[in-house]
């Protein structure tokens, strides 16, 4: 695992597209060796931030360092330090997997002996070694994404950027892509910076920045973010609901909410709370369950809406604009 220095440093970063502020004075740091996630709805500014960090876009203002290099003044050094997997495929489909990787190796000036060894190693990791002589055109969406991950790692980058790495893939393939990502972290001295709008994927990150309308609204580990919601959610059903509520209020100093006969309340650590509670609770219990809050609950709490329900007009407009600037 890499040392814990700040591998990515972003200070007051902004990007405007005309009137639209896609990224609004964003500041954060990514530690070496961690999986850092950007979570937010489409059009929140995730891809724009990645594009700035990988030197494809110039920021309107602010500063960003990747591996200690400035993304504006030291583009070449930044480019050598990073690997990228974009939302949309960036492979030459008319070439074979091997030819695509060779191109990448030449472009990054990787010596021949290292190239051969590394190519085999990575293609075996993503289980494409047997298909290396096939044209990419014949690959499925998941295979292409795997090949791109292998390609992004060919030149031993310090940071691997994954922009929505599993977008448009079926659940099974998504899981496999994640297996590779987690395996990579074990094997390589690698920091992974990814964006996603899937809550369940964000759970895999060490730390998450929740981004909305170009601003970071929260940044912490998934567990801590969920703790901020107010701990775990316990729901119970009692024979006598009134008595149960009274007891919860008096003996436990909790603020239960009742809905359809279900009594729900927050406790910091549900699993450890439950055994003692069941033993000592006087009212007769019919059922009880405990649930960790999801990142969805976190997002709703922070922004007042769920991640998927969003007004389309402005965001689509923004997305189209950003495509125009790619």
């Amino acid at each position: 695992m890499a040392d814990r220095t700040d591998i990515v440093e972003v200070e007051e970063l902004s990007k405007n597209f005309g009137q639209l502020t896609a990224v609004d004075r964003v500041s954060f740091k990514v530690n070496g060796g961690e999986i850092f996630g950007f979570l937010g709805p489409n059009g929140a500014g995730k891809t724009t931030t990645i594009n700035i960090l990988c030197t494809l876009l110039r920021p309107t203002s602010g500063r960003a360092l990747v591996n200690g290099y400035d993304v504006i003044k030291q583009r070449t050094q930044v480019r050598c330090s990073i690997g990228l997997v974009f939302q949309d495929p960036t492979l030459d489909e008319y070439l074979t997997a091997e030819q695509n990787l060779n191109f990448h190796a030449y472009a990054y000036g990787i010596p021949k002996d290292i190239r051969r060894k590394r190519m085999r190693e990575l293609l075996e990791l993503v289980e494409l070694w047997d298909r290396r002589k096939n044209r990419v055109r014949t690959y499925s969406g998941g295979m292409k994404r795997r090949l791109e991950i292998a390609r992004g790692l060919l030149h031993h980058p310090k940071v691997l950027f994954l922009d929505e790495p599993t977008l448009g893939l079926d659940p099974q393939t998504r899981r496999r892509i994640w297996d590779y990502i987690l395996a990579l972290r074990q094997q390589e001295e690698l920091t992974i910076f990814l964006t996603t709008h899937y809550m369940d994927e964000a759970e895999n990150c060490d730390r998450i920045a929740i981004i909305d309308y170009g601003r970071i609204v929260a940044l912490d580990s998934p567990d801590k973010l969920k703790d901020n919601v107010g701990g775990d959610l316990v729901s119970l059903k009692a024979e006598n609901t009134e008595a149960a509520i009274a007891e919860l209020k008096e003996s436990y100093h909790l603020e239960p909410v009742t809905e359809n006969g279900m009594v729900t309340f927050n406790v910091p650590h549900g699993e450890t709370f439950l055994p003692d509670f069941i033993r000592s609770f006087n009212s007769h219990l019919l059922s009880i369950s405990v649930r960790r809050p999801t990142l969805d609950d976190v997002f709703i709490k922070l922004t007042g809406r769920a991640i998927r329900e969003q007004e389309v007009g402005l965001r689509d407009q923004m997305r189209t604009m950003m495509k125009g600037h790619r």
Partner: peptide, 16 residues
Amino acid sequence: WDREFGFLKEVLVAPL
């Protein structure tokens, strides 16, 4: 063609 099919991005982020 490269721009349309995305390959141009691979070229543009390379240290070239």
